[in-house]
Amino acid sequence: MKKPLHNNKFTKKQFIVLIVCITTGFIIGYSYNLTKDKEKMNNSYVDQEESYREDLIEQQERNKELAEELSDLQEQIRNVEKNFAKNEGQYKDLIEDAEKLRLQLGLIPVEGEGIKVTLKDNVYDPNSTNPNDYIVHESHVLSVINELKISGAEAISINGQRLKSNSYIKCNGPVITIDGHQFPAPFVIEAIGNSETLLSSLKIVGGVFDQLLMDNIVVTMEQSDRIQMSSINNEM
């Protein structure tokens, strides 16, 4: 009796299994390569971020060194000018004007009498339709700053940040940004100058103080015999 010959052709079931195996192998290989590529990209981003962070730290240190050098040079110039003024009395007024200008620009530290104004958010009334009506905004801060400048304030700071002649103040939600630095409420505004004059200018009838109260802002003001402010170079 003859034995049946083996069939060398794939059956339909074997062909399907082969296709499934090939497809699975392709998917596994593709997933593996994709994972490797993602890991390379992530490592590249981490290395790049670390490099940027190191560059930033190095630049900040360099800025600090330059600020210290600038402060030293300015102090040397002031000493030379003072010595020059002693020998040349006719230039005394010019030296005094230069000193006043440095004071206004915030280039030198200052100390003297003045006032302190504190602005706080009020307690929100749930019956109100707008919660922003109880929050301190940049317009409130600017109104105080402008009135103090008009009244002869020699130097002004907000939460310890000394203001420059070209300082900018911007409201950003619950905080304000002053020359790139963010400060949350309450906002403590200090001004050096004649305390009686500065306080009277803010409390004039219908003035800044009354307007702040109408805007539901909590305001406190006090005079001080001694207020200190550092130069802007020391804040860098």
Rank of each mutant, 00 (worst) to 15 (best):
L119S: 01
I77L: 11
Y91W: 15
N122D: 15
I95P: 11
R78P: 04
K86W: 03
I95K: 15
E138L: 02
H137N: 09
L107M: 14
F84W: 10
E99N: 10
V110M: 13
K100A: 12
T118C: 07
E138T: 13
A85Y: 06
K149H: 07
D121K: 00
R102F: 10
S128G: 10
L101Q: 11
N132G: 05
E99R: 09
I145R: 02
Q104T: 09
D93R: 11
L101M: 12
S139C: 04
K116T: 15
Y134C: 00
V117S: 02
Y91M: 12
D93K: 14
I108F: 07
N83P: 03
K116F: 06
G114C: 07
S143Y: 02
D121S: 07
S139K: 06
L101E: 14
I108Q: 14
D97E: 15
V117C: 09
I108W: 06
R78W: 05
Q104D: 15
S139Y: 06
R102C: 08
K149L: 08
E81W: 04
N127I: 06
E88H: 14
K82F: 06
S139N: 10
L103Y: 05
I95W: 10
P126K: 07
L94G: 14
E113R: 07
A85C: 05
H140E: 05
Q104C: 05
L119D: 02
D133C: 00
H140S: 08
E96L: 09
I108V: 15
K149R: 12
G89N: 12
Q104E: 15
V144S: 02
N132T: 12
D121Y: 01
V123D: 01
P109T: 12
I77A: 11
N130I: 02
E138G: 03
N87C: 05
K86L: 10
S143I: 03
A98L: 13
F84V: 09
A98Q: 14
V141I: 13
N122A: 15
S128M: 05
N127W: 03
E81N: 08
K149I: 07
E81L: 12
L103N: 14
T129I: 06
L148E: 03
V136S: 00
G89C: 05
Y134T: 00
G114E: 01
N132W: 04
K82R: 08
S128P: 06
Q104L: 12
L101W: 13
S143T: 08
L101K: 09
E88P: 03
D121L: 01
L119A: 02
I115Q: 01
L105G: 11
T129Y: 08
K92A: 14
V110E: 15
Y124D: 00
